[in-house]
Design a protein around this nucleic acid. Structure first.
Lengths: 186, 186
DNA sequence: TTTACGATTGACTAATCACTCCACAAAAGT
DNA sequence: ACTTTTGTGGAGTGATTAGTCAATCGTAAA
């Protein structure tokens, strides 16, 4: 019965369906089953709510990736583990994923501090930097690599959502896609 | 002095800066230098304006790609030509590009008819289908290939905007990126 | 000159919005 | 027991919104 969580969940659902400015705070409060005043007790402004939701979801995703880390793996195995955990998170949490996409391309993005973004990506960046040093990954700017991989995952996800393939076929495509991107960056 | 064009340009600029619902029609009319009534004379609703703008821009992009086609080329050369023309269009028209990105991840996308989308992508899809048949491209679902290439271009573009590299370096990265994606899909 | 008609205007409206205010309830400290 | 802090509700507010409308303007055919 955490009201803050209820508000975030309601906001997430409505933002994805109607867009940020397309969903009034009153509807969010209603959907969350709390009063209008309660919403503004926890979040001073609507913008603050949007930001909080973004960071909340990003943190969940980052946590999900990092947790799947395991010792004594080859770089390729680690990389694949992280690749798959990101992709499966996106497939398993389509609403959250759509929200992050929507947020990323919206003017709200500029309201997120550079530091906050770094905090979320530092681990992966460091991992890739090391992989470059170990001459496993191609010697490209690490930002470029990161962006290429991210957009690759976006793409696969979009395809899997659009075309409804069965689980067997989906697994096949994902494995194939991993090989594609791995060959591309090594 | 085409008022419709002025309205579209104003809407584009403001939508990218403030988001769809974040920019009132009154501001669009003001920015375009026309009256509120004129805007609604040409576009019955705000949604209709948003849709019209999307199709307007998509058509410009599609035209830009198709026009660059040339006879007697290898498949690779044709592909590279189209790849580069898309990417340079995106780099040269950042506002338009940002708008299409924003639109694609917004709830508005579902208001575009499936036919309209097909119309815009048919040429590229056919081209790739033939390239698969000719055993130049890997035998993957053509939708998947298309999505992978699109998101690759998104990624490169995002990187080039974020990191301000000089023109020389930019050209280098673009050529490198083309080789990456070409190796990936062939 | 007259008629006709789309283009254009800007004041107007009904609805909606983000956000405030205050009363009260439940804990939490002392 | 008493005071303070924190959570909660919901009516209320002024600003803003998408969209309307009756009135003009420009111009070209009759």
């Amino acid at each position: 019965m955490d009201k803050q969580e209820q508000i975030l969940n309601a906001a997430l659902k409505l933002f994805v369906e109607f867009g940020f400015h397309g969903t009034p705070t009153s509807k969010i409060a209603q959907e969350a089953g709390v009063s209008n005043g309660t919403l503004f007790h926890y979040y001073k402004t609507k913008d603050e709510l949007v930001l909080a939701l973004f960071i909340h979801i990003k943190t969940k995703l980052t946590g999900c990736i990092d947790n799947s880390r395991v010792e004594d793996e080859t770089i390729k195995a680690s990389f694949k583990r992280m690749y798959l955990s990101s992709l499966y998170w996106a497939i398993g949490n389509p609403i959250e994923f759509r929200f992050t996409q929507q947020f990323h391309t919206s003017p709200y993005l500029s309201m997120v501090s550079h530091e906050e973004i770094l905090k979320q990506t530092r681990y992966l960046m460091d991992f890739m930097q090391e992989a470059i040093h170990a001459r496993v990954l191609k010697s490209l700017p690490v930002d470029l690599l990161f962006t290429l991989i991210s957009s690759h995952i976006f793409g696969i996800n979009e395809y899997l959502i659009a075309s409804n393939v069965d689980e067997q076929k989906q697994k096949e495509i994902i494995d194939q896609s991993f090989d594609l991107i791995w060959d591309m960056i090594t």
